[in-house]
């Protein structure tokens, strides 16, 4: 049985979570995205705290799509924490933020982001992005890393 690599999302906007799921579904994914709604939840998921201890239900992700502007702990906090964890040093983290500010982009890369993507302005573009990510996830490089 082949299981799809898990994609974890951290985004406080429920609409964005919904559209992302829709876009990835249309891009051919069967397994829904794992969606957390702020930085604290995302860190809890990764470290397997509480209900996230159940790794059959909440498997470790092969990729994190991380929003920057979130309550409690923002994307920079999460990214900073991730790069300090030996287990997640190599976890691909794609920043998916509405901000196109150079300062944010620079800070994200400085903290070890794998990639920085400005949130697509419409659903069509989001679908294109989802297809690209799905294609990347099935590539050999990602499979090895996961």
């Amino acid at each position: 049985m082949t299981t799809e690599p898990t994609i974890l999302v951290a985004d406080d906007d429920p609409n964005d979570g919904f559209f992302m799921n829709m876009a990835f579904e249309r891009a051919g994914r069967v397994t829904p995205l794992q969606v957390t709604h702020d930085g604290v939840e995302a860190i809890a998921y990764l470290s397997g705290e509480g209900l996230y201890a159940d790794r059959t239900q909440y498997p470790l992700p092969a990729l994190l799509l991380l929003d920057l502007n979130m309550p409690r702990k923002n994307g920079f906090d999460v990214l900073g924490w991730i790069r300090q964890q030996p287990d997640f040093k190599l976890l691909p983290v794609y920043i998916l933020s509405a901000s196109s500010r150079l300062a944010d982009i620079n800070q994200a890369y400085a903290l070890g982001a794998t990639s920085y993507i400005v949130k697509p302005g419409n659903f069509d573009e989001l679908q294109r992005l989802a297809r690209t990510i799905v294609a990347a996830l099935t590539s050999e490089q990602f499979t090895r890393q996961a």
Partner: peptide
């Protein structure tokens, strides 16, 4: 301007869906 884009994106997305 930045914050207005998020709900707008949602409206646009739902209309498209």
């Amino acid at each position: 301007a930045h914050d207005l884009r998020a709900p707008l994106r949602a409206m646009q997305g739902y209309a498209q869906l």
